[in-house]
C-alpha cells in the first residue's frame, strides 16, 4: 500500500465566439458635460470581469484614464443589443464594439479640441491623463472636462460613438461539415502532478503547471483569476463532479452541496501558470477568449497523470476512488 506519484500532459485549443445565425454585439458611448464617458451595453458580467475589461478598451482608445469611463449595463431599455455572455465571446465581441464606438467618439473629441485650441485635429494627441494636446507643443492643451463643457455649451456637439461587431452567419455544409464557426483559437498546455493512494483510490492533485496563449492579456489580474479558477474547476470535473454518478442510471443524484462534491479550499493544488501572447487579428487589441478554456486541459492531464502514477487508464469521468480501485483490481486480477 503506497502513495504513487505520476505526471500527465494535455494540450488543447479553444475557439473564441460562435456564428449561430450571425453573432453581433453593440456598444454606444457618449461624453457627459464634464468629460466622463458612459459606455452603454446590454452585456452581462458573470464575474469574469467584462465591465472592467471593456472600460479598459474604451479608456485605451480615448486616451483617457480608466477612471473616466463608466459602464452602464445591462438594461434592454437603455443598452443596445448583445447576443449574450457565452461561447467565450464577451471580451472579443463587446470589446471590439466598444473600440469601434470609442474610435468614433475620439474623432469628435479631437475635433472639438481642435476648434477650442484653433489647431488641426490631425496635430492633436491624448496624454493618457485627461488632456488633449498639440503634438510637439504639449503646453498647448485642453482638459477633457473643459473640452466636454465646450462641446455641450459652446459648440453644440455630442461627443459620442457607435460600435458593432458582427461575426456573420455561416451555415455548415451538411455533407462535409465545412464551416467557419469561430473567430480565433486560444491554446493551453497543462502538466498535472498527482498522488494516487492505491489503498483508498483517492487522487490528490499536487501541482498543476499551465501554459496559455490567449492573444493578449488585456488585464493580467483578471486573466490570472480565470486561469486559477478554471484549473480548479477542471480538477473538480476530473475528480468529483457528476449529477448522475452512475450514469446512465439516474439513481444517486446529488441534491445539494453536501452530496455534489467539489474540491474545497483544503484540496487545491499548487499552481504555476504562464501566459503567452500571440495577438489575434480579429481580437480587441489582439485578445482571444480565456474564460472557458481554462477548465479543459486539466481533465485529461489528470487522467494521464493517474495512468502514469499507477497504470490505471480511466476512460470515464469523474475519476472517483471507486473507479481507481476497480482499475487497480483489474491490473492485479483482484
Amino acid at each position: 500500500m503506497a502513495i504513487r506519484r505520476g505526471r500527465g500532459y494535455a494540450a488543447v485549443n479553444y475557439p473564441t465566439g460562435m456564428n449561430l445565425g450571425g453573432d453581433p454585439s453593440q456598444a454606444l458611448i457618449h461624453a457627459t458635460t464634464t468629460g466622463t464617458f458612459v459606455v452603454s451595453l446590454s452585456s452581462v458580467d458573470l464575474g469574469q470581469g467584462l465591465k472592467t475589461v471593456v472600460a479598459q478598451c474604451a479608456a485605451e482608445v480615448l486616451g483617457l484614464p480608466y477612471g473616466n469611463i463608466l459602464v452602464d449595463t445591462a438594461d434592454t431599455d437603455t443598452g443596445p443589443h448583445c447576443m449574450g455572455t457565452f461561447a467565450s465571446r464577451g471580451t472579443h465581441r463587446v470589446g471590439n464594439a466598444v473600440i469601434m464606438a470609442a474610435t468614433e467618439a475620439r474623432e469628435v473629441m479631437l475635433a472639438v479640441a481642435a476648434d477650442e485650441l484653433e489647431v488641426d485635429a490631425g496635430d492633436l494627441e491624448t496624454d493618457g491623463s485627461g488632456f488633449v494636446q498639440v503634438k510637439g507643443a504639449e503646453q498647448k492643451r485642453i482638459h477633457i472636462t473643459d473640452l466636454a463643457l465646450a462641446a455641450h455649451f459652446k459648440q453644440g456637439r455630442t461627443i459620442s460613438g457607435r460600435g458593432i461587431f458582427l461575426k456573420e452567419k455561416n451555415d455548415p455544409v451538411p455533407e462535409t461539415g465545412e464551416m467557419d464557426p469561430d473567430s480565433c483559437q486560444a491554446h493551453a498546455c497543462t502538466v498535472a502532478v498527482v498522488d494516487v493512494d492505491d489503498e483508498t483510490g483517492v487522487v490528490e492533485v499536487v501541482t498543476m503547471y499551465n501554459a496559455y496563449e490567449i492573444g493578449r492579456a488585456l488585464n493580467p489580474a483578471t486573466v490570472a483569476q480565470q486561469v486559477e479558477g478554471g484549473a480548479w474547476m477542471g480538477m473538480s470535473h476530473a475528480l468529483f463532479e457528476a449529477t448522475e454518478p452512475y450514469y446512465p442510471a439516474r439513481s444517486h443524484g446529488p441534491a445539494d452541496f453536501s452530496e455534489y462534491l467539489m474540491p474545497t479550499a483544503a484540496d487545491i493544488p499548487e499552481q504555476h501558470s504562464a501566459i503567452l501572447e500571440r495577438p489575434a487579428e480579429s481580437g480587441p487589441f489582439g485578445a482571444k477568449g480565456i474564460g472557458e478554456m481554462t477548465a479543459n486541459a486539466p481533465i485529461p492531464a489528470i487522467a494521464n497523470a493517474i495512468y502514469d502514477a499507477c497504470g490505471v487508464r480511466l476512460t470515464a469521468m469523474p475519476f472517483t476512488p471507486e473507479r481507481v480501485l476497480r482499475g487497480l483490481d483489474a491490473l492485479t486480477g483482484g
Binding site: G47, Q225, E228, G229, M233, F257, T264, I268, Q271
Partner: peptide
C-alpha cells in the same frame, strides 16, 4: 463554497 476563484486568492 466559491465556484469562481479556486480559493487560492481568498
Amino acid at each position: 463554497v466559491c465556484r469562481c476563484t479556486g480559493y487560492a486568492s481568498i
